[in-house]
Amino acid sequence: MLTRRIIPCLDVKDGRVVKGVKFLNLRDAGDPVEIAEFYDKEGADEITFLDITASHEDRDIIIDVVYRTAEKVFMPLTVGGGIRTLDDIRNLLKAGADKVSVNTAAVKDPDFVKRASERFGTQCIVVAIDAKKSQKSEVRSQKLEDKSLKSEIRNQKSEIYRWEVFTHGGRNPTGIDAVCWAKEMEEYGAGEILLTSMDRDGTKDGYDIELTKSISEAVGIPVIASGGAGNLQHLYEGFVEGKADAVLAASIFHYNEYTIKEAKRFLKDKGINVRPNF
């Protein structure tokens, strides 16, 4: 039976691991390769590198990190952040990544997701959605005039949305409804959704369950819950209430608050089907 996944996420900036609190105030938490090896031994189910290096010219740094990591660990590796072209994807896969996650590039050009999934297979294209609760039900209809957005979401002007998609590491609002966007990305060939609640990220208050559940029930592809995990109960809630297929967490693992093994034991005791490696 397929098990639920626990995925530690390493935010990597200029080749070093950092963890942002609400995408600000970065702290340095070490060498990505060493940390990946540590999580491999711990029995993490996958590892995600999120490259938050500002400049596209510095892409070689993350490629080198992936390259060196793939020498040491034999587990699935996803890389996201700053991916703009099919060549970017090819270079990461070649270096040893199994999946890539795209966010801004998908919003700018949804066809990019289509081309990427046709070229590399849907299974390796993850669409990352940074979503934030929205009070402004009007934003959508205004922004929908934006010609860069394709397809049906443009026509559903009357519907009020509850979470808005952000791009550029959470800086830019798009006016797009997150649930509609997830469905659309599935149609364009996304193999998985990495869903981050911007409201919860860095808060340790738990995942945004409503958001996670809404998207997980709306799409037929796996959803990874992200943003807000502060304890093991939160992981449990992400699976059971949020209906996530995988949970992603950073600080609770990076700062040794819990080990992956403890997390798995906790979840197993509560009846969640996890891969036994403890």
Binding site: L2, G191, P222
Partner: peptide
């Protein structure tokens, strides 16, 4: 191909993760 409406409807495709 998991038909909507039956008990498999919650199974996601792609099949991603660790299985035995």
């Amino acid at each position: 191909n998991f038909k909507l409406g039956n008990q498999d409807s919650q199974l996601k495709v792609p099949h991603i993760g660790w299985n035995d």
